[in-house]
Amino acid sequence: MAADLAAAGHIRSKEWRAAIESVPREEFIPEFFTKVDRADGPTLWDPTPARSGNDGWLRAVYEDISHVTQLNGEITAADVPEAIDGNPTSSSTMPSLVARMWEDLEVEDGNRVLEIGTGTGYSAALGCYRLGEDNLTSVEFDPQVAARAGRALGRAGFRPHLVVGDGEAGAPGTAPYDRIIATCSFRYVPKAWLEQSKPGTIILVTLFGWLGGTGLVKLTVTGDGTAEGRFLPGYVSFMPSRAHNPEPAVIPELSEAASSRSTSLGPEVLTTYGPAQLVAQLAVPEAQHITFGPGGDLPEHLLVQPDESYAALRGAAGTWTVEQGGPRQLWDEVERAVAEWRAAGEPGIENFRVTVTPQEQRVDIHGGTSWSLPTG
């Protein structure tokens, strides 16, 4: 696995290659779920535990894929005898992304690192190997996940500072930190992380939103409560910090009096990963996207937000009609933001910059267009 990651450019230094060659990943995922897609029902998750004696288990552990390790905030593969329905709530990240992020963090000998999201503990073990366990603090929200990670780290010979709590609060007990790395995603950069940093601290975090836009951001702390940085190229997606998930969307009453018009901008801006999706999300950060099957009374695509503003898209490629209701014209705002991005030359995600101050957090693109991130 280490040789493959190095050949693909994910490992770029001898220090991280040594860590990945030395830390046994199987200690951290003794069981996991395998996704089972079905045409006639919901996706199922099949338990793949080590205890089954399946020869393919160890090979799967060292594949460059993410493994789901928990469903619905409590169920592990060791808890069930057969495939079940459920929502993934914890996982072991694909090794190539773990390696890339540690490399992008630019750690130096003696650096104190705060990791947000212990998960299985595999990433924390790599950090311990590279920097020493006294220099690694890891925070996990879920007590059961944290306990399993602690046991796995112990089996592998590592005892970092483990904290059970909300990662948004950081870990003031071992601050300040030289580096902060998050293995779950956030809608904004938590204020506590900057308070537990110092000028020059590097923060690596995936910023996401409720329309699916996501990207890995690398920031450098520049002063008291301030930081600057940019999105890194490539697609990166992590499970959200649980406090940053939205409340279930409420479908509003679709008014017959709502304004309706044609639109050249179709729902692909909501369904296709890329800078246009991120821009749409920045324009309406409180909105959620709901889809319905064709041919019914409900629209194929619906944007809704808590103030009962909505935008309903009906039609097909090139012939979309949008109906808007509530206090905000959501689709107007999406169209305006996408038009500004196009006028700037359709820059890629790596051209989006992030500025953090005590007063606000903003994302801007070349040409001066910028949007505020939600901060609570």
Rank of each mutant, 00 (worst) to 15 (best):
M1N: 03
M1A: 06
A3D: 15
D4W: 04
L5M: 06
A7S: 15
A8M: 04
H10K: 08
H10G: 03
I11R: 13
R12A: 13
A19W: 00
I20D: 07
R25I: 02
I29A: 15
I29Y: 10
V36L: 11
V36T: 04
R38D: 05
A39H: 03
G41K: 06
D46R: 14
A50K: 15
D55F: 12
D55R: 14
G56Q: 15
A60L: 03
Y62L: 05
E63P: 02
V68G: 15
N72V: 05
E74A: 14
D79N: 08
V80I: 13
E82P: 12
N87V: 14
S91I: 10
S92E: 11
L97W: 00
L97T: 08
R100S: 09
D104S: 03
N111Q: 06
N111S: 12
L114F: 07
L114I: 04
I116F: 08
G119T: 13
T120M: 08
Y122A: 10
G127D: 05
Y129P: 10
G132N: 02
E133N: 03
N135M: 06
E140M: 13
P143M: 08
A147M: 06
R148K: 12
A149L: 07
G150I: 05
R151E: 10
H161E: 07
D166I: 08
A169R: 10
G170Y: 11
P176M: 14
Y177I: 04
I180S: 02
C184N: 09
R187Y: 00
K198Q: 11
V205Y: 05
F208T: 15
T220K: 15
D224M: 01
E228Y: 01
F231W: 10
A243Y: 01
P248W: 01
I251W: 10
T263Q: 09
L265A: 05
V284T: 09
P285Q: 05
P285M: 05
G296N: 02
D307Q: 08
D307V: 12
E308W: 10
L313S: 09
G315A: 05
G315E: 03
G315Q: 04
A317Q: 06
G318N: 00
T321E: 15
Q324H: 09
G325W: 14
W331P: 13
W331N: 07
E333W: 03
G348Q: 09
N351C: 12
R353F: 01
D364E: 14
W371L: 11
S372M: 14
P374W: 07
